[in-house]
Design a protein around this nucleic acid. Sequence first.
DNA 1: CTGAATCCCTGCCGATACTG
DNA 2: CAGTATCGGCAGGGATTCAG
Lengths: 134, 134
Amino acid sequence: MTHQTVGHPPGLPDDPRAHVTEPTPSCPVEITLEALRGRWTTLVIRELLQGERTYTDLRQALPALSDKVLSDRLAHLARSNVVHRERHPGWPPRTHYTLTPQGHRLAPVLQALWDWASDNHQPPNPPHRTDQRT
Amino acid sequence: MTHQTVGHPPGLPDDPRAHVTEPTPSCPVEITLEALRGRWTTLVIRELLQGERTYTDLRQALPALSDKVLSDRLAHLARSNVVHRERHPGWPPRTHYTLTPQGHRLAPVLQALWDWASDNHQPPNPPHRTDQRT
DNA sequence: CTGAATCCCTGCCGATACTG
DNA sequence: CAGTATCGGCAGGGATTCAG
């Protein structure tokens, strides 16, 4: 039958979530994509993979990222148990962000994402141009 | 060195794209996420990982997916060189979709996405409720 | 310094209807 | 059968402003 595709690594074979017929929050793939969702998210994670960062550190590392979106991303990543927020009392106020253990475990995921496109020497085709108003 | 994080497989160490300070189409991570972008996308890929499928096969496998979105996803995946479209002449018209070699190489990526959330026994925290007007 | 609140604009997604 | 055309609703994300 021509398709040995992927074999069946642990997790996939008879897990009911591998057979859902619509996008559902219980599917692990959806959960991870949800954690990574949003523009800038992976770049924030990349910074934190290098070690602890303060709010200002992140702003400086990603200058084009607005306060609102940075806050949103950090809040989202905190809710997803990817980052840990630690407020320091005193003045000036400082907040330190670090990856949780789960956050560190995103490294292989990002690596996989990197590798797929990196091994691809064939670039994507140009977009279809039906009407596309830029 | 505090950051062996992921080791340094080919691609990451001194690649300039690993240091971009804003989301850019040249970053391999962005490219892959772009290929996977959109609701239903990963489910369509999952179906095709099992082998060739026709348009109708996909509709039946994912009943809640509308024609428009299915067409959109397939077109998008074709542009991303993930799927190959093969029209069969004659009547009734049949179109067969298969994964390209690059498409098959998404299997480890999806596996990584699956594994991350699958190994996570700690569920995400409930959303912050400040005022949220339903 | 570290964020949260507001406003606006754009792009996605779903439903429906129509064509080769 | 295999799509495309069109429309409407809604959520994402950027700029700016305000607060602890």
